[in-house]
């Protein structure tokens, strides 16, 4: 694969005219977006607007039908690209956590470090413990996922992604499956991450979070970006009726 240049001018993620069909249903109808290094972008929109699909295209969990996606200087839509190499640098956290139930919290974080990055057990363990500490779960390292609350599981999932030292983190409605009282712990971790300068693309319904943490809010509906801008601009002075309508229902 091509080498990755760490240039602050170069966007981390660049999407050009992205189309995605599920059968005959077009869920993404030409999306263009760039995310710069250190930027926190939230994607908002009603369900079915294509925001999750857009996110999942960025690490090719969904294969785009048309268009280009660039990660740094790698075109990931190029069939010759080794997507597994790219995914090492693109962290993703899912709505349903997707922890490995047969491994402890620590084991979950260690697996890819050992198998993908080929690190030694000691090294992987050290990184795992460090990352679990970051999400406030030092004392849960040996717990199995089934012994953890939903919020704790989601924080383990975040630690698992962070351990790979990603250049960008994708969050796909990570608090939607959580009981309300568990949401805060996860958002706190994400907030901390944003303050630490992580590039983040966050699909969320947490409007408070989007408003406080995001550098940019993107509103999508029916497979297109309707409008985007600073959170203040989008939340307080939406230009489009669809945005107003959506925000009116949510807030």
């Amino acid at each position: 694969m091509t080498s990755m240049i760490n240039s602050s001018e170069q966007p981390v993620v660049r999407i050009i005219d992205l189309h995605k069909y599920f059968g005959s249903l077009e869920v993404l109808k030409g999306v263009d977006i760039e995310v710069s290094r250190g930027e926190v972008v939230t994607i908002l929109g009603p369900s079915g607007s294509g925001k999750s699909t857009l996110l999942r295209c960025i690490n090719l969990l969904e294969k785009p039908t048309e268009g280009e996606i660039w990660f740094e200087d790698t075109c990931i839509t190029d069939p010759k690209t080794n997507i597994n190499k790219v995914r090492e640098h693109v962290g993703m956290v899912f709505q349903s956590f997707n922890l490995f139930p047969h491994l402890s919290a620590k084991g979950n974080v260690m697996l890819a470090l050992r198998k993908v990055q080929k690190r030694s057990r000691e090294e992987a363990e050290a990184i795992a413990l460090e990352q679990l500490a970051k999400v406030g779960l030092s004392d849960r390292a040996e717990y199995m996922p089934s012994q953890l609350s939903g919020g704790q599981q989601q924080r383990v999932a975040i630690a698992r992604s962070l351990a790979m030292d990603p250049h960008v983190m994708l969050f796909d409605e990570v608090t939607s499956a959580l009981d309300p009282e568990l949401v805060r712990g996860v958002l706190d971790v994400m907030r901390q991450l944003a303050q630490g300068g992580m590039t983040m693309i966050v699909v969320t319904h947490e409007m408070g979070f989007a408003r406080d943490v995001a550098d940019r809010a993107v509103f999508m509906d029916e497979g297109v970006i309707v409008e985007q801008g600073t959170p203040e601009a989008v939340f307080d002075h939406p230009k489009h009726d669809r945005t107003k309508d959506f925000l009116g229902h949510i807030i």
Partner: peptide, 14 residues
Amino acid sequence: HKGQFEGSASLGMN
């Protein structure tokens, strides 16, 4: 669960 495959894939596992 399909999520197990996706979770693994998102970590760069082949």
